[in-house]
Design a protein around this nucleic acid. Structure first.
Lengths: 318, 318
DNA sequence: GGTGTCGATACCTTGGAGGTATGGGCGATG
DNA sequence: CATCGCCCATACCTCCAAGGTATCGACACC
């Protein structure tokens, strides 16, 4: 179906030397062997490539066309092995992975172990950055790969949406919203939720959930990390929304906290892995996305019990 | 030294399916056979292309790079055989060959026979055109290949200089220059040579020969073809310069003509084969140039006796 | 814990690529 | 004009490497 690269080498050699014997010498094979391979290349499409014009052979028009393409192919093939050999053995570079702070503490630890196992020759550097900073670094090329939550401005980037993780309401047991009763998104409208500091996308997402029902939450205090946020809830300052992947790490028994999932269309956020459209490692990053997606299945399985329907971290198909 | 195209197919199939078994099915080989070939591609440069991550295999960074290049190679290879197969059997197009009038009657007949023998599947259309018209057609693409004499403006063209053919003085036996005596270029300076019509490069070349010695020839009559020119010389109107390749056809015994070569640095003209730099058939045209050069060796051998040193049509190396 | 799937390994088989010997055609040479 | 020599094609043989079958080990899912 396809000619061999070696056969193409023979054809090019004949074209360049104008002789079968000389070409055979150059290719370090016997002349009959070369003749036979050349003939096969001619027979495959049923075309004469060479005009046997003593005392030399000349190219036919198709021959010229084929030889031109063939030498291009050979050059690219040689480049391929060269590029591959260049990155043999040695460290195959370091990938700078940017992660937003509301994902990093929960998504990363297990993931990095998996990645190191799969790609031992690659280094991974982690940068914890807020969404807009992460996007700047991604576009500037100081970060290669970004793990963040939608929505964001994705021009110049491409990637793969991994999972939708639902939000879970976390409230002090003493809080009105803490009473064990079914809740809906509308129930948190106007509630005085504790929020992340300005600049964290989780803050905007929480506000969004409330805004859906009309009223943005009025709040006075804010936290710089999810962990702090939970401590504040623990202190009875008010309820908050947590992404499901944070529950296992942040909820401990005997904290006086109630976690409750939503009954209706569960609010949630989409986590996505992004890279520059121009990145040469797109195909590889796709694979990392797959690993990440599976990693979130593990996180889903490790999720603690909450009141209401069990929140599901839902995989998205590529 | 180089991977097989088939091996690259296997690698690409594994990358696309993410499975060895599925890839083997797609390639219509057994799974162990495919595994082995993939391993060889990995061993050649000493690189891991795939991370065996159950339940699928993932690309490594080098793997992604290699697979990208490999699929490009495969696409080009398929295109190569497709292009070749498309021009199989059927007529492989027609080459429009432009020739200047002072070459055509002498250079062409034998050449066409040779070309038809070498390239039976190609048609040759001949266009007899003066240099400047020929150049216009060449650049416009209405002529593919031009056979002409230097000098000319060759921008946008490339080609191969074939031969230098000397000029020979042809004079009536009764003419002063017809006396059997050694002549030099200086002897024709100021001579009243018969010339071709304006527009024929042979006219300019003859004038050049005279101008070298200082004085352009003063002449009153001119001819539209070399044949007419010789008839005029025969009528005693004066001498002229002929290119050596025309002698065999134009000089017959008993015409009362004397042909005489030059003693010193023989004046002559360089014949060249030209085509557009953008032509995809450059490599083929080179071959046609070779055939043409050899054809001129035949013409040289067929040259009749002339007074003075035997004029030599001299081959130029490519 | 049984079962199924996937990739790796071991061993055998065979087709095709390569080598040697030889033939035919053309050009060069004396 | 006969001979030689060069170049490409053909014929036949050899052998390696690509492919197939059988099997194993690992992991996932019942």
């Amino acid at each position: 179906m396809l000619p061999t690269l070696r056969q193409l080498e023979y054809v090019v050699a004949v074209a360049e030397t104008g002789q079968f014997v000389e070409a055979a010498r150059r290719c370090a094979v016997s002349q009959p062997a070369l003749s036979r391979q050349v003939r096969e290349v001619e027979e495959l499409p049923g075309v004469r490539l060479f005009a046997r014009a003593r005392p030399r052979v000349l190219l036919t028009p198709v021959g010229a066309e084929v030889v031109g393409r063939a030498s291009g192919l050979l050059a690219q093939a040689r480049e391929l092995v060269e590029v591959a050999a260049a990155s043999a053995g040695a460290r195959q570079g370091t990938v700078r992975l940017g992660v937003i702070p509301t994902i990093a503490p929960y998504g990363l630890p297990g993931l990095l172990a998996k990645l190191r196992g799969l790609f031992p020759e690659v280094g991974f550097a982690i940068h914890e950055l807020q969404t807009h900073v992460l996007l700047d670094h991604l576009r500037a090329g100081t970060v290669d790969l970004g793990l963040l939550a939608r929505p964001f401005d994705d021009h110049g980037l491409q990637g793969r949406d991994l999972v939708v993780e639902p939000f879970v309401l976390v409230a002090p047991a003493t809080h009105p919203l803490g009473v064990p009763e079914a809740i809906r998104a509308a129930d948190v409208a106007g509630a005085s939720l504790l929020l992340m500091d300005d600049g964290h996308c989780l803050r905007d997402q929480a506000i969004d959930v409330c805004a859906v029902a009309g009223a943005p939450p009025a709040t006075l205090v804010s936290a710089a990390s999810v962990s702090t946020l939970v401590r504040m809830v623990e202190s009875g300052l008010g309820p908050t929304l947590l992404p499901a992947s944070a529950l296992a790490a942040e909820l401990r028994p005997g904290q006086g906290l109630v976690a409750r999932s939503f009954l209706d269309a569960q609010p949630g956020r989409t986590l996505t892995l992004q890279w520059r459209t121009t990145s040469p490692y797109g195909a590889w990053f796709e694979g990392i996305g797959t690993v990440l997606g599976e990693h979130y299945l593990d996180l889903d399985a490790a999720m603690p019990e909450v009141a209401g329907p069990r929140p599901r971290i839902r995989m998205l198909e590529p």
